[in-house]
């Protein structure tokens, strides 16, 4: 890889991570003023902000690498759904509270391994963002784990809904651990993370929580893929329509 190739690859990689963070941050923020009680409402706002903050850091770095006048707002607000490269699991509608917390547990466990690995990246900026973000993710994980325990091992109704959320989400977890050529290239160069290597520990940690929560690990009998190639569910378009509407209606507007 020559310098320019490697720069373009890192730019694409930073955008993927920015897209993951932005889309999930937007989804979580939908709970603000709708969460089951006040403290939880505030928690959702806090976690959403952490993700939006991450998106800004990744997009800011992407803008620096692109060096073509585009800034973080251009990446967040002026790209279409096909240009977004987030994993599909992040764009799924928030569902009920069990769905939101099960998704959070799945991705918090994923990010715990991912960010720890990325913190050792040879790319100093990616390493610094990851070292910062992992501290926040440890807090997120503590909360999502507690919620899944409480809901899974709760009433018949909460158990049923939590197991259903897990079953409905399961097919979207596979692509998290299927790095494409770009990701493998960057992992080999010591810049990126080979997510396939994270799967055994992720599954082990997840099984431990599910066991305590009296939930069962679903069977691997279906999978949906496409986020990293830009083939999304219809939900991303709806999410972006809302997220981007003000910026597109009033280009360049500031608070």
């Amino acid at each position: 890889m020559n310098d320019d190739d490697s720069k373009q690859a890192t730019l694409a990689y930073a955008l993927r991570l920015g897209d993951d963070s932005l889309v999930l941050g937007q989804r979580i923020s939908e709970w603000v003023s709708n969460a089951p009680f006040l403290e939880e409402d505030i928690a959702c706002g806090n976690v959403a902000l952490d993700y939006i903050g991450r998106a800004r850091l990744y997009y800011g770095y992407a803008a620096e690498l692109a060096a073509d006048g585009r800034d973080e707002d251009d990446f967040a607000y002026l790209r279409s759904a096909r240009e977004f490269r987030n994993y599909l699991i992040y764009e799924l509608p928030r569902g009920d509270f069990a769905f939101t917390q099960v998704r959070q547990l799945l991705v918090d466990l994923f990010n715990t391994g991912y960010l720890a690995a990325l913190a050792g990246s040879r790319d100093a900026t990616l390493a610094a963002i990851a070292a910062k973000a992992i501290k926040e993710t440890r807090y997120h994980l503590r909360r999502s784990r507690e919620w899944v325990l409480r809901l899974g091992d709760g009433t018949g109704e909460s158990h049923r809904r939590t197991q259903k959320a897990l079953d409905d989400l399961w097919g979207y977890t596979h692509e998290l651990f299927e790095p494409d050529a770009l990701e493998l290239r960057l992992a080999a160069a010591g810049t990126g993370v080979d997510t396939a290597a994270l799967k055994p520990e992720w599954k082990r940690a997840l099984a431990a929580v599910l066991n305590e929560a009296t939930l069962s690990l679903p069977a691997d009998d279906w999978a949906v893929r496409g986020g990293r190639t830009g083939y999304h569910t219809e939900n991303l378009g709806h999410l972006l329509t809302q997220l981007q509407s003000i910026h597109r209606a009033y280009p360049g507007c500031r608070w």
Binding site: E39, I42, A43, N46, V47, L49, Y139, R142
Partner: peptide, 13 residues
Amino acid sequence: RVSEFGSTACKAL
């Protein structure tokens, strides 16, 4: 502890 997350990002309740 009542909540891990408080009125701002830096506080717990």
